[in-house]
């Protein structure tokens, strides 16, 4: 990232009493990028978003958008679209009035505001609902109105605070797709807060994983998933086996020296396989089966390793059938294979 980044956050700190919600956070977001901030509750992700929006006054630090520091600018002067967790639609206005609100506030005449609101509602497929009362809308429709309202005034930046957490699973997946589509269509730089790792992986160009007021790792979904640098990120993003460095025979840390103290070895459960693919780019782990659970599309098996430690492996249905996993009893000896580059050294924190 160069200084051409669209959003530059530097040294941002915010404490509530002795609780440090943001601890010297720095982050760059590129123009047109879709960046997710992912973390458990209390990690500071919402505080960071609200500082961007202007609702949290940080203790110190800079937030500049398009080269201009706006950390002291009031929220209503920032020109940033925000979609809130509960949508925050105005219940005393109908759909059209909600969407027209940001335009009317900017002194745009009723006719033009109505026309632009209609276009915005068209984008979210709600053109025929303009006169409806907010109370009569479904969750998904409210979500769309909130989106239309946040983009209608052509903000330079869009912030979303867990906007889909109130929706059920099917609708959530559909809205994930639609939000991403809207982003691509408008080219709007978007910062998206979520605690749902799958949602972040699905939607984002890049993900910033936060914990305890600090960004622990920043990167593309694939790099974060496949090459986490810490145990926390590894476990937060998927099924991770954490082993001692010497648990795998003949393991040589790839890329970098991994002999430092406090380091562990991480293997994703689905990277372990029963198929014998031994060669110089594979290693095998022998152990005994302790448990196998059928989960529909796959099996989840637990294996105690000969060299100490235990792993869980996700075995796809086809492979499980090949090996007749169903017939395998507990205590049966087993050999698991894994590519060398799937052995990831991580910090044990």
């Amino acid at each position: 990232m160069t200084s051409a980044a669209f959003i530059e956050i530097r040294n941002l700190s915010k404490a509530y009493g002795s609780f440090r919600a943001l601890n010297d956070v720095g982050l760059d977001v590129g123009r047109g990028e879709f960046l997710s901030i992912l973390g458990p509750s209390g990690s500071g992700k919402t505080t960071l978003l609200m500082a961007l929006a202007g609702f949290v006054r940080p203790d110190r630090g800079q937030i500049s958008v398009d080269g201009r520091d706006l950390v002291r600018l009031p929220a209503n002067k920032r020109g940033i679209g925000v979609v809130f967790q509960n949508y925050a639609l105005f219940p005393h206005m109908n759909v059209a009035a909600n969407v027209m609100f940001p335009l009317r506030v900017r002194g745009i005449g009723r006719a033009e505001a109505a026309e632009r609101a209609r276009k915005a509602l068209d984008i979210v497929d709600l053109a025929n609902m303009a006169e409806r009362d907010i109370a009569t809308l479904s969750g998904g429709q409210k979500q769309r109105v909130a989106l239309a309202r946040a983009v209608v005034f052509e903000p330079r930046l869009m912030l979303m605070d867990e906007p889909l957490s109130a929706l059920d699973k099917n609708l959530r997946e559909q809205m994930q797709y639609e939000i991403r589509k809207l982003h691509d269509r408008l080219g709007l730089t978007t910062v998206y807060v979520t605690h749902d790792q799958r949602e972040a992986l699905t939607m984002s160009d890049r993900i910033a994983v936060m914990r305890d007021g600090v960004i622990r790792q920043l990167g593309t979904p694939a790099s974060l998933y496949h090459r986490p640098t810490s145990r926390f990120v590894a476990e937060f993003l998927g099924e991770a086996n954490i082993l001692e460095l010497d648990a795998v025979e003949s393991f040589v840390a790839p890329e970098r020296d991994a002999t430092g103290a406090g380091r562990k070895l991480m293997i994703r459960a689905e990277r372990l396989s029963l198929s014998d693919a031994s060669g110089h780019d594979h290693v095998s782990l022998s152990g005994t089966l302790t448990r196998s659970v059928f989960q529909g599309d796959s099996w989840l098996i637990s294996v105690d390793l000969a060299n100490g430690g235990a792993v869980s492996a996700r075995i796809a249905a086809a492979e499980a059938a090949n090996f007749n996993l169903e017939a395998l009893a507990e205590g049966a000896p087993l050999k698991l294979h894994v590519r060398r580059d799937a052995l990831i050294p991580v910090i044990d924190a």
Binding site: E8, N11, G26, V71, Q217
Partner: peptide, 12 residues
């Protein structure tokens, strides 16, 4: 993660 302070950054 800590990035280097932006140009013209100061303790505000």
């Amino acid at each position: 993660m800590t990035l280097p302070a932006a140009d013209g950054a100061f303790d505000n």
